[in-house]
Structure formats: C-alpha cells, structure tokens
C-alpha cells in the first residue's frame, strides 16, 4: 500500500458574491497516493481553480475535510497554512512568476529563504542541485529576463522542487508555451515522476494531456465527472521526438 498524500472528503466551497451564493465546489472526494501523476481537467467555471487553491492550502473549504500528508488543513490559520505550503507544496504557475532581474539560483532558493532552518550554504547547494535536475546546471547565474519561456518554466520547476515537497502543483504549467516547449516541460515532469518518484498534480483544460498522466480527474459544475486511471501512459519524450525539428 503506497502512502496517501492527499485525502479529500466531501469538499465544498461557497463564495458569496453580492447577495448570491455561488457553489464553486459541491462536494468532492478523492485520494492521491505517493508517486501518482494526476491531471485535473475541467472547463473554466468548472471549479478546478477552486479545487487547486484548496489543495494548495491557499484557501480553506466551507465544508468537508482535507488532509495533506496526514495533516488536517481545515482548522489551520493563515500563518500555519503558509508554513505548510513552504514545507509540503511546490507550485508551478502558467506565467512562471519568477522574480524579475534576479538570477536563477536566487529565484530557486526563494522558498528556502522563508525557512529559517536552512542555512545560506545549504540553500545554495540545494538550489544548484534543483537547477541541475531540470537541466539548467549551466545557467545558474542567468537572470530571469535573459531566459526563454521554457527555461524560465524550468527555473520555476526547480523552485518547486527545492523544498523537497510531498506534492507538486502545476497550474496550466504549459499554457504559455509552444507545442515543442510544452512537451519538453511535460517530459521533464514525467521524468521527475518516474525517476524521482515525485507526486504531481497537473491542472489543465487541455484534454490531450490526459494521455501522459497516470490518472485523470474531470471536474464539471463543482463535482467530479470522472476519475479514471490510465493503464498506458504515453511518453512525452516520444511525442517530443516525433515533433518536427525547429530550426
């Protein structure tokens, strides 16, 4: 039995807009185990962003339970959730969200800056290791504005890895990239999943990407429409190799 990283029980989230109450999530339950590569899909307005915010401990549910790595998040206050994010979660965003005019190493070590247990020396070593892992070992001192979109997203992935999180949350991580670069990033994520054993949740509205994950959860109108395991995961690297070479 593999370790359960995420357990969600009948999660509900309501928003009050004016006098109306919007039910963004109407009761969602699932569990994610260590080493899974889960894609969460849904059109805009389906509630997938709300779900992502809840999983990412950025938000608290109106009702229901959420356990991250065995810890109940529901009763946590803002500061406790901030610390939990810092130690357990790695975020990857659509728009990279790197600090401008800042070197790759400085960008990557940012999460560790908010962890006083990590010394400056260790911070640097771990940042360099994370950058080497995403294939940017030769661009440690490049500034974020001197890098391509793909490279910037790799820095962002390294930043998500540096705190050794139990889960990586990718929010439309390939949404801003061209097809080829998208598959490069996807290849990297697949490699991290299979070789490094990282648990990854990839939120997207692109149905194609379901073929490359081990499990696909589809959200519609605040409920889970389908939750399917993919027996034959396609290799992103093979797709990448088949793509016409750019010159």
């Amino acid at each position: 039995m593999r370790k359960e990283i995420i357990r969600i029980e009948d999660l509900k989230r309501d928003f009050v807009v004016g006098e109306e109450t919007v039910h963004a999530l109407r009761g969602v339950s699932f569990s994610i185990c260590e080493g899974e590569f889960v894609t969460i899909m849904g059109t805009s307005g389906s509630g997938k962003s709300t779900l992502l915010n809840l999983i990412g401990c950025l938000d608290t549910p109106t009702q229901g339970e959420y356990y991250l790595d065995g810890i109940s998040v529901k009763t946590m206050n803002k500061n406790q959730r901030a610390t939990l994010r810092n130690r357990k979660i790695g975020f990857i965003f659509q728009s990279y969200n790197l600090l401008p005019k800042t070197t790759a190493v400085d960008n990557v070590q940012l999460p560790l800056m908010y962890n006083s247990d990590v010394s400056a020396k260790e911070r640097r070593q771990r940042s360099i290791r994370a950058l080497q892992l995403v294939g940017l070992g030769d661009r440690l001192q490049h500034k974020s504005n001197q890098m391509s979109g793909g490279q910037q997203q790799r820095v962002a992935i390294a930043r998500a890895l540096v705190n050794e999180p139990v889960i990586i949350l990718a929010d439309e991580a390939t949404g801003n990239l061209d097809t080829r670069t998208s598959f490069e990033i996807l290849t990297l994520l697949q490699r991290l999943n299979t070789e490094e054993g990282r648990t990854i949740i990839f939120v997207t509205h692109n149905p194609e990407l379901a073929e490359y994950s081990s499990r696909n959860i589809v959200i519609r109108d605040g409920r889970i429409k389908s939750d399917t395991y993919n027996p034959s995961v396609r290799s992103a690297k093979e797709t990448l190799d088949k793509l016409p070479k750019q010159d």
Partner: peptide, 16 residues
C-alpha cells in the same frame, strides 16, 4: 502584487 502573491504561495507569512 503578483510577486507578493508568489511569495505568499511559497510560504511567506503576512508578517514576512
């Protein structure tokens, strides 16, 4: 604002 959002998402507290 986005930078602040990012810092918060990777674990910065309001106090930080």
């Amino acid at each position: 604002t986005r930078e602040i959002g990012l810092r918060m998402s990777i674990g910065a507290k309001g106090f930080d």
